[in-house]
Design a binder for these strands. Structure first.
Length: 670
DNA sequence: TGAAGATAATTTTTT
DNA sequence: ATTATCTTCA
């Protein structure tokens, strides 16, 4: 038989970029041969660049883009890498499977939901929905919420999730992390079973399910394992230090079932998600688990000045675990990190604001500055001061966009339309109606769940009979609203569906139940604008539930991007960099966090968080702490400067003393 | 019995 | 500022 060979040429200019844009150790890592590879990348060492170029290199060698699985830690990181990849390989970049574990799990599970007892239109529960359903499941399992000694839903939620993510037994986890629950272990196990049953009945998955069920699919359905192994010829995992037992089992299983190509990238010193089950050993022991794995180290820091790098090195040297590294700055000298003590949190806020304004006067845009803190509430005083001074900012911690009550309400409307079995969402909506509380909402939902066509059941006389007389008018209006939303062809036009929600009774609900009602209505309108970019409601809702890095101001309206100061928890700042960084509230018990230092290994974890914080700065770094702190309603007490400041050589800092100057008050002027 | 309103208590980090 | 808990009312 005659043969014709189709020739494929690598993307234009790729070879040159691979040669020119990378330093020798980056190039070696990016072009590592097949098999298992570990890339240890210190902060600012061009990790994102190496990962993107490695993917480009694989494509350049002939791997189809869709055969590459690139698991990142946040959606933002995935977007950034795909965008940069686009510059190297063009449109092919979009075909790479890039996303978080949860995203990829979500996409894959949609195809195989049936095999796991779910429908493909399952909805995703956020942790608040999860907590509500666990509360109901606990009642199913005979754990009365009236019993004061009984565990609380939040606690049960935590142990269940932690056990799943660490692949340990419930007994183990309870014994180790929640001693007070030991006597309740059997009850908790029953509640877990009841919770699983409720999720299945409601056709809902929680965050953990997206991983647990993915792994279950691989373990119990050999055809799927073979299929996915073949599908993903190259598996790359970014931020390996923050993966947990469940996640690493998934990728190792995939790689083993396929071609065995697994590249792990990360920095053990930046492992900061232990509370979520992340296991530091996944990166530390990678070479042991994969004999023959090659290890690459990227130790040149292109981000920060030598003065900032010196501090990061000195700090992390107090940790006794981790790979030894020699981080070196490739940049010219800058100022030493400054340390300032203030009288209290208000003076700290004033200082930071004044410094920010002075830095802006030196032509540094606000968006090139960030204030980082350990705990979200450490930002509230500062926010007040920023507002008072008219400094625009974006907060990247605390309540996410889709977790705000009014956005969740709108999502509940959309989710109900998408998946009429979604119990959590029905309950949320029904509780808005006057005269309907938890009990009546449960009764109505039971009627819907029992019906083959929940929408028909909703409008039935039988359901109306379950509603108290005085609620019948509002209930009929609600049913009408739902029908109007359904009539917009919501699956294809999500924005229209949101407009339909606003056109119905929901606006009145906002005004009646929430403060700042008009702001919230604007938010919802903005949500509709965001939704207009989607041509599938299922995708919109799915992605939103997994958009952990989306905050209020990110959604804020469209003209041109505004120059905003960034306020962020250290955790949310991972992977980012700014010219000028302020780390505030550096007091013992705050940063390091008290609860963390009480646990074994907690101090080292907190020190890694500090390491992440200071290594975000490119040029200037200011570290501040208030000398007195008042805790909530408690008394004001003297605070101890963070051990992370006092344990390192003071020569690495510039100590700054605060002076006060009062502008003369001339009452004759003005 | 269940809903609604008033009062008191409490914050680690997040997919 | 939000959420659990207690009290009152239908």
């Amino acid at each position: 038989m005659r043969k014709i060979t189709l020739k494929h040429s690598p993307p234009a200019g790729l070879a040159r970029k691979l040669a020119d844009d990378l330093n020798p150790s980056q190039r070696e890592a990016a072009s590592a041969p097949d098999g298992c590879n570990l890339i240890l990348a210190g902060p600012g060492s061009g990790k994102t660049r190496v990962v993107t170029y490695r993917v480009a290199w694989l494509i350049g060698r002939g791997a189809p883009a869709e055969s590459i699985l690139l698991v990142t830690f946040t959606r933002r990181a995935a977007r950034e890498m795909v965008e940069r990849l686009g510059g190297l390989v063009g449109a092919r970049a979009g075909r790479v499977w890039a996303g978080t574990f949860h995203h990829v799990g979500n996409r894959l599970l949609r195809r195989s939901a049936r095999e796991l007892g779910f429908e493909s239109n399952f909805t995703i529960l956020d942790s608040e929905d999860q907590k509500d359903l666990i509360g109901l499941a606990m009642t199913d399992a005979g754990l009365s919420s009236k019993d004061k000694l009984a565990p609380k839903p939040a606690q049960v939620q935590h142990v269940l999730s932690f056990a799943l993510n660490t692949r340990r037994t419930l007994e183990d986890v309870i014994a180790e992390t929640a001693g007070e629950l030991v006597a309740w272990t059997d009850h908790v196990r029953h509640a877990a079973a009841a919770y699983a049953a409720r999720k299945q009945a409601a056709n809902c998955m929680d965050y953990d399910d997206l991983l647990v069920l993915w792994l279950k699919l691989l373990n119990e359905h050999p055809a799927r394992l073979a299929e996915q192994g073949k599908m993903f010829q190259h598996v790359l995992v970014d931020e390996m230090q923050d993966t947990n037992a469940l996640q690493i089992e998934i990728v190792e299983k995939l790689a083993a079932a396929g071609s065995g190509n697994l590249t792990a990238v990360g920095d053990d010193a930046q492992s900061i998600y232990r509370f979520r089950g992340a296991n530091y050993d996944n990166i530390l022991k990678f070479p042991d688990r994969h004999p023959g794995a090659r290890t690459f180290k990227l130790e040149v820091n292109y981000r920060s000045t030598p003065q900032i790098v010196a501090l990061t090195r000195a700090s992390i040297a107090h940790n006794h675990t981790g790979f030894p590294k020699e981080l070196v700055s490739a940049r010219g000298d800058g100022p030493k990190p400054a340390v300032v003590a203030t009288a209290d949190v208000y003076e700290e806020a004033a200082l930071v604001c004044q410094q920010i304004l002075e830095t802006r006067d030196r032509d540094v845009p606000l968006a090139e500055m960030a204030v980082l803190y350990r705990n979200h509430y450490d930002s509230v005083v500062l926010q007040g001061e920023l507002l008072a001074r008219g400094i625009p900012y974006n907060v990247r911690s605390g309540v996410r966009f889709f977790e705000q009550a009014h956005v969740k309400d709108v999502l509940a409307f959309l989710r109900v339309v998408l998946n009429p079995r979604d119990e959590a969402s029905w309950r949320r909506l029904l509780l808005f109606l006057p005269g309907i509380g938890p009990a009546k909402a449960g009764a109505v939902h039971r009627l819907l769940a029992a019906s083959a066509d929940p929408f028909k059941a909703l409008a039935s006389a039988e359901t109306m009979a379950a509603v108290p007389t005085k609620s019948r008018g509002p209930f009929a209006a609600f049913v009408n609203d739902i029908n109007l939303i359904r009539a917009t062809d919501p699956e294809k036009h999500p924005a229209d569906a949101i407009q339909a929600v606003l056109a119905g009774g929901y606006k009145a609900t906002i005004r009646q139940r929430y403060d700042r009602a008009e702001n919230r209505i604007k938010d919802v309108e903005q949500f509709a604008v965001l939704a207009a970019k989607y041509d599938s409601l299922e995708r919109l809702v799915g992605e939103l539930m997994l958009a952990g890095d989306l905050y209020g101001a990110d959604v804020e309206g469209g003209d041109e991007p505004r120059d905003l100061l960034v306020l962020s928890s250290v955790h949310q700042a991972k992977g980012l960099e700014w010219s000028s960084v302020f780390v505030v509230r550096l007091v013992d018990d705050g940063f390091p966090n008290r609860r963390a230092t009480d646990e074994p290994g907690g101090e080292e974890e907190e020190r890694r968080i500090f390491y992440v914080a200071v290594s975000r700065a490119k040029d200037e770094l200011m570290l501040t702490y208030p000398s007195t702190v008042s805790r909530g309603f408690g008394p004001t007490t003297f605070s101890t400067p963070s051990r992370f400041l006092t344990e390192v050589d003071p020569d690495l800092f510039e100590r700054v003393a605060l002076e006060h100057e009062f502008e003369s008050l001339d009452i004759n002027k003005e």
